[in-house]
């Protein structure tokens, strides 16, 4: 098990992860902290919104984004005895309610409108946005591979992914799961351009549009 800030664990060491773990056929549990903007005040060097996208290029990897202390605990207990390669993304930003960590997608809220898939610590904001949209909300701590069966059983035509890392990172996994049916997909996550500001995580969530009101506004415009 290896643990450090996400920027140094994933970005700095990426070739070693690719070659010295994955290519050697060796497993491990890589646990990062800091995420996309936990450390907003220290700037870009300590922010890694691209970590999930980068790690998802590793064949066979399992990516977890547990977002409460309890979910982190369960995730680590699942990953440690396993022989595969796991990336566990831990952030200081967290959701209010814990869900059972692991591969299962949870239906947190049912509605007649669009389906919102919340990944990571944006579940609270996604639920706040869902209220006025009559949306179904799905949540999972396991970002990759996705629980395709539950996803397929709970989506209509309009699917929204909310992810607190590079916008569009999970679009491929969702589209692949729904490849045989007509659907449209909106991805909402951190902006690809740098937010060249310091300040607080709350201010950065606002800048990326990842607060309840901002999510609702954008989804409504898209619908």
């Amino acid at each position: 098990m290896i643990h450090t800030f996400s920027a140094f664990l994933v970005e700095r060491a990426f070739e070693q992860i690719k070659l010295d773990l994955a290519h050697q056929g060796v497993g491990g549990v890589l646990v990062s902290s800091g995420g996309s903007y936990d450390m907003a005040s220290v700037g870009r060097t300590h922010q890694s919104p691209g970590d999930v996208a980068l790690m998802s290029t590793i064949p066979g990897i399992t990516i977890h984004a547990p977002s409460t202390a309890e979910e982190v605990d369960v995730t680590l207990r699942l990953a440690l005895p396993d022989t595969g390669l796991h990336y566990v993304r831990v952030t200081g930003l967290r959701n209010t309610l814990s869900h059972k960590a692991g591969p299962t997608l949870h239906v947190v809220r049912r509605g007649g409108g669009p389906t919102l898939l919340a990944l990571g610590h944006v579940l609270d904001a996604t639920l706040a946005a869902a209220d006025g949209l009559d949306a179904t909300v799905l949540y999972t701590t396991q970002v990759l591979p996705l629980d395709e069966e539950t996803l397929r059983g709970n989506v209509g035509q309009d699917v929204v992914v909310v992810e607190p890392w590079h916008e569009g990172t999970s679009a491929h996994a969702v589209s692949a799961a729904l490849a045989d049916r007509p659907h449209r997909l909106l991805s909402m996550g951190t902006r690809h351009e740098e937010v060249r500001h310091y300040g607080s995580p709350r201010e950065h969530a606002e800048a990326h549009g990842l607060t309840g009101p901002r999510l609702a506004e954008r989804i409504r415009a898209w619908l």
């Binding site: 920027a7 140094f8 700095r12 005040s41 220290v42 700037g43 870009r44 060097t45 300590h46 060249r196 500001h197 310091y198 300040g199 607080s200 201010e203």
Partner: peptide, 23 residues
Amino acid sequence: YESPLGFHPDRTLVPGVEISSGS
């Protein structure tokens, strides 16, 4: 949030700073 001066310097925000560092 609005300050050009943060806990690691950004060369695009601060005159005289030649490299953005922190890593």
